[in-house]
Design a protein around this nucleic acid. Structure first.
Lengths: 110, 110
DNA sequence: AATCTTTATCGTAATATTGCAATCTGAAAA
DNA sequence: TTTTCAGATTGCAATATTACGATAAAGATT
């Protein structure tokens, strides 16, 4: 074994897991934060910003794109990447929801 | 190779990655959602709620606990687990922050 | 056309994760 | 004390992830 049993969980649970898993690596967190930092989203220099080889960065970008966390357009000789706001909002709503429900319940017994 | 190069990233980036990685599995999302659903946090039946064997569930619980997403107390013969509100709030704040900054910038060019 | 530049892909090695059977641990019940 | 029960730990097999050198692809530059 070793493969995740996704079929036993709900679509929503798998969706959240896919998003959080995609962010579950410091390089990918760093990429998202860099994309947030720069003003323009024409960013042909993500590789230079990270302490990783170009193929590794390319792979991380692909994973973020597959998960829907970033969007990418071919821009001549470079690639224009930027954060997909809607996806971040999904995560924001998810955690806000949990937070709110927990505060209302006050079941903090541990 | 194959090991994540955590030393090249900031503590904050690693911290976020640790939290999101811990949630990056549908079983662990399901555990958190179950802990949220039940009123009491004396929960000796998480294993029955999940389509996984007992050792697997125990391992997932351990990972959630290591990441600080849940807290656990020994309660006689059972274990009392519950969500750590503060950690969820950290995630909430993180994504709210990104969301807000993106909305202000309106750099949605892709 | 030949070259340069940037990003993607392939192949592969090292390491991590997932899942479970078997087993251990420790408190409660008999 | 012995049994029982819930949960943790161990050990292992299957699979996934991470990282990078080599190479390919494709538009830009000369």
């Amino acid at each position: 074994m070793g493969a995740t049993k996704t079929e036993h969980f709900t679509d929503k649970q798998n969706a959240i897991a896919t998003l959080t898993k995609a962010l579950g690596h410091p390089a990918r967190v760093a990429i998202v934060e860099y994309l947030m930092k720069v003003d323009t989203c024409i960013c042909g220099d993500i590789v230079n910003e990270l302490p990783l080889a170009q193929p590794t960065v390319s792979q991380h970008l692909k994973e973020l794109k597959n998960a829907g966390l970033i969007k990418g357009n071919i821009e001549g000789n470079a690639i224009c990447y930027c954060i997909d706001e809607k996806t971040i909002e999904k995560l924001q709503n998810y955690f806000t929801n949990i937070s709110t429900k927990l505060t209302n319940k006050k079941n903090d017994c541990c």
